[in-house]
């Protein structure tokens, strides 16, 4: 049927325009998902076609910013998937805690909830002070929110449950100040976190990392872009270096499957294979 093919062509061109005009490259995102976002925006604009929306995109900066926000995935919570945090405590921390300095890269940090979760964990393990957390995202709006560390109090009950299930050693209430219907994360958690703008599709490595956490990001990428990101992570990781993916993400279908060894298959925690050691 012609109209599906035509619509896909319009989507190709829309993403091409986004890239050529603004430098944001969504061409290798999982297409079904990005298409839904574009079609959702089309409905809200009241325009008739994606081509008409492309004209708007090219000529209207404000509209570009709206689309950029549409394309950004910001679903997150404190200690999301508590068993993952437990696995970090048990399987990664013992292997890095004697390092003089620890570098952690949280790629695709969205509004920061999971970054603060890691900060809490590091504090409880007594290694926060020698750790630097690089928390990155391409979306400047969410980075700003992450920096502020202010979250709606209505989710607290769930967060406290998650914290306990994640092996929390103290009381989660020690890590924030409650004000009206918001909570403000404690400044002692923030001091070693550097929030910054970084785009996995086009930006490069910025330092040697001991741990990279990138969860529920690459499921939005096609295989080609997943390969690109795994290469980036491989280049950024030291030895030993650990990569943590989301529970339904895997290196096993990528070109780099031999470069990572699963140390916890269920929680998708991988160790970089030290190729020098193999020689």
């Amino acid at each position: 049927m012609g109209d599906i093919a035509n619509r896909n062509l319009e989507i190709d061109l829309f993403l091409e325009a986004m890239y050529k005009k603004y430098g944001y490259d969504f061409r290798n995102y999982s297409r079904a998902s990005i298409k839904r976002r574009i079609e959702h925006r089309l409905k809200l604009t009241g325009l008739k076609t994606i081509s008409a929306m492309q004209h708007e995109l090219i000529n209207n900066w404000n509209f570009f910013e709206i689309v950029l926000r549409d394309f950004s995935i910001n679903v997150t919570e404190m200690f999301r998937d508590p068993s993952f945090y437990k696995a970090i405590r048990e399987e990664i921390i013992p292997k890095i805690k004697d390092f003089q300095q620890i570098n952690i890269w949280h790629a695709g940090c969205a509004t920061g909830e999971e970054v603060y979760s890691i900060a809490v964990l590091l504090k409880e393990e007594g290694i926060y002070d020698k750790t630097r957390i690089y928390a990155t995202d391409f979306n400047k709006d969410v980075l700003e929110k992450a920096k502020q560390g202010v979250y709606p109090a209505k989710f607290l009950k769930q967060y406290i449950l998650n914290y306990r299930e994640a092996g929390g050693m103290g009381s989660f209430t020690d890590y924030y100040t409650a004000k009206y219907e918001f909570v403000l994360m404690d400044s002692s958690l923030k001091k070693n976190i550097l929030f910054s703008d970084h785009n996995l599709t086009c930006d490069t490595v910025f330092g040697e990392m001991d741990v990279i956490i990138c969860r529920n990001v690459i499921i939005y990428f096609n295989i080609e872009l997943q390969n690109h990101v795994f290469k980036l992570f491989l280049d950024a990781l030291g030895n030993p270096g650990f990569l943590c993916l989301g529970s339904k993400e895997t290196v096993s279908i990528s070109d780099y499957v031999d470069n990572f060894e699963a140390i916890n298959r269920k929680e998708k925690i991988y160790k970089k294979v030290d190729k020098r050691a193999v020689l």
């Binding site: 999982s30 998902s33 679903v75 499921i219 939005y220 989301g246 339904k248």
Partner: peptide
């Protein structure tokens, strides 16, 4: 004809 997962709301 491949499958994708998503954590959209």
């Amino acid at each position: 004809h491949t499958l994708s997962l998503s954590v959209d709301p």
